[in-house]
Computed example of a mutant assay.
Amino acid sequence: MEIRLTTPLTTEQTKTLKAGDSVLITGVIYTARDAAHKRLVEAAQRGEKLPLEIKDAIIYYAGPTPAKPGRAIGAVGPTTSYRMDAYAPTLMDMGLTGMIGKGKRSPEVVESMKKNGAVYFGAIGGAGALLSQQVQKAELIAYEDLGAEAIRKLTVVDFPAVVVIDCEGNNLYELGKAEYLKTQE
């Protein structure tokens, strides 16, 4: 069974999610990669207003390709998440509740997720063209000079993801491996 989520993603919602849950996200999510994360954190440290509302937001670690005619966006597949690990705890302390990417997260990020009630979703790498079909609207909102890595506000409908790490720190990568090893005994 897939769980339907509508943004903003509150901590009340994140507390109901468990590692391994399949979700369909509808609403606004933001794309940002490491260069944009660095700028966001530096701006926050200077006390500047951020170009997006971080509280209860979901950031998708993606750098979309240009849109083809008649489409809102080009391919929008996930990028490797660990490159954002230096910045994610600061953003979670500011209220970020969801991150979408691929790959493992550092112990510091997982601890921050537990502290702040945030979750980490996985999206399917290599399926960027398919994922783009769930994007109804894409708007560049900050750091245009970063090109594909600029921050974009995406309006999505039924964007598919899996809870990889829940707000209790349960990690699907570890749970899945343990389940597999049990079947091999």
Rank of each mutant, 00 (worst) to 15 (best):
L5A: 04
T6A: 14
T6E: 14
T11A: 08
Q13E: 11
T14K: 02
K15N: 15
T16F: 10
D21N: 03
D21C: 02
V23I: 03
L24P: 01
L24C: 03
I25K: 00
T26H: 05
V28W: 01
I29K: 01
T31Q: 10
A32I: 05
R33A: 04
R39A: 09
L40K: 00
V41C: 07
A44H: 07
A44Q: 10
Q45R: 13
E48H: 05
D56A: 00
A57S: 00
A62P: 07
T65Y: 15
T65C: 14
G70N: 11
G70F: 07
G70C: 13
A72T: 14
A72N: 13
I73C: 10
G74F: 04
A75H: 13
V76Y: 11
V76M: 11
G77N: 01
P78S: 09
S81M: 12
S81E: 09
A88D: 01
P89K: 00
L91F: 00
T97L: 01
G98D: 06
I100C: 05
K102L: 03
G103E: 03
K104N: 14
K104S: 13
R105V: 06
R105P: 04
S106T: 14
S106Q: 15
M113L: 01
K115Q: 10
K115P: 03
A118F: 00
A118G: 02
V119Y: 03
F121A: 03
G122W: 14
I124E: 08
I124A: 10
I124D: 05
I124H: 08
G125C: 03
A127I: 07
A127M: 07
G128H: 10
K137G: 12
E139Y: 13
I141C: 04
A142F: 07
Y143L: 09
L146F: 10
K153Q: 09
L154R: 02
T155E: 11
V156C: 02
V156P: 02
V157N: 15
V157A: 15
V157W: 15
V157D: 15
F159R: 04
P160E: 01
V163Q: 11
E168L: 12
N171L: 13
K177D: 15
A178H: 14
A178V: 11
A178L: 13
A178S: 13
E179N: 13
E179L: 14
L181W: 09
Q184L: 14
